[in-house]
Computed example of a mutant assay.
Amino acid sequence: MKVLIIEDEELAVRKLQKTLQSVDAGAEVVGITDSIRASVKWLQDNKAPDLILMDIELADGQSFEIFDKVEVNSTVIFTTSYDEYALKAFKVNSVDYLLKPVQKEDLEAALDKYRKMKQLLSATDAPANINVDNLVKELQQRLQTKEFRKRFLVKQGQKLVSVEVDDIAYFYSDGRVNFFKTNDNRKFIVDYTMDELEEMLDPARYFRISRSFYVSIQSVDQIHDYFGNRLLLNLLPAVDKEAIISREKVSDFKKWMGK
């Protein structure tokens, strides 16, 4: 299966490639584009791939514009942080619609749906029509059940307390144990890895700046240039280790802060 990825965030591209490879080792990424203009040119200059993983919000507009500028003969799986585009997405060659961050099981289910649809159409020589109503109903059901973490149950002395995610300023690791600090400067141990937390937290509100730090947008007080093309954050409340944004995440962090 040949795949084109249309995505303007480098971190999202890398994560999508990794997830795709873990789901289908035989999938070949034949191209990566980051804008409407580049995507149109790629599609004009190359043979249509079997599948396109397409982000809806690109730097130069919404990717729906691609369909107005060039004929797209591939099946499309849309990825986005916003569910408002669902109906419009299914009016083009879409087999599914995945919300970011794209989960392995969701991509696996979408690819399985794509393969089954392809087999069915090949067996019947039918035109590649998609039942929009059924897909929209399925999407609505998924959106209604998909939720980010709302609270954490943690130890405080000899008792357990429930802490609302809204009250958490940031998560960090000392290399052995993971913690979070609340907005009122309380510190708790959290029994999840940083990778697990990345799947639990709303990406519109929390950003992983490095392997050992996950910050909320309200905790960022000041941003400073740091050597090695990195950034150093001053966080509120104050943290007892440096909050440094790794070089490969600087661009995505700036986009996140500017939304």
Rank of each mutant, 00 (worst) to 15 (best):
Q140E: 13
D55T: 14
K104A: 14
K150A: 15
Q62I: 13
L143M: 11
L98T: 11
E28Q: 10
Y172F: 15
L111S: 07
I168W: 04
L121T: 11
L107R: 09
L51F: 08
V30T: 13
T80N: 06
K41D: 15
Q158I: 05
Q144R: 10
V163F: 08
S81K: 08
A109S: 06
K146G: 00
E105Y: 11
F152E: 09
R142G: 03
L135K: 14
E108I: 01
E28S: 08
L153G: 07
L143G: 09
L111I: 15
E28G: 10
N46K: 08
N134I: 01
L107I: 02
D34E: 14
Q44V: 03
F90M: 09
L43S: 06
S39F: 07
D34I: 10
L107H: 05
E105T: 05
D96K: 12
D45P: 04
T75V: 08
Y172D: 05
G31H: 07
V132M: 13
A86N: 00
A128C: 02
L139T: 03
E138M: 07
V76G: 14
N73T: 09
E105W: 05
Y82M: 04
V40N: 07
I168L: 08
V95H: 14
D83A: 07
A109G: 00
I36E: 05
T33V: 05
I52Y: 02
Y85G: 15
V70R: 06
L120R: 00
P101F: 12
P49S: 10
R37N: 11
R151M: 11
T75H: 02
K41W: 00
S122V: 00
L160G: 03
I56Y: 09
L53K: 03
V95E: 11
N129H: 04
V76N: 10
A48H: 06
Q141E: 06
A128Q: 02
Q158C: 03
L43D: 11
S81D: 04
I36P: 09
G157M: 06
V70K: 05
T80E: 08
V76E: 14
L51R: 08
D106Q: 06
D112F: 03
K100R: 11
L121K: 10
T79C: 11
D83R: 08
R149N: 12
V40P: 08
D34L: 13
L98C: 02
E105N: 09
I32S: 04
L121V: 12
S94K: 01
I32E: 09
M54C: 07
A110P: 09
L53Q: 07
K137A: 13
A48D: 05
L51D: 05
A126G: 12
R142L: 10
E57T: 12
D45G: 08
D55W: 02
L43W: 07
N46A: 08
P101M: 15
R142D: 10
F148R: 14
K118M: 09
D96M: 03
K104T: 15
S162W: 03
S74E: 04
D167C: 10
D166Q: 14
V72K: 00
S122Q: 12
A27S: 14
I52K: 06
Q62Y: 15
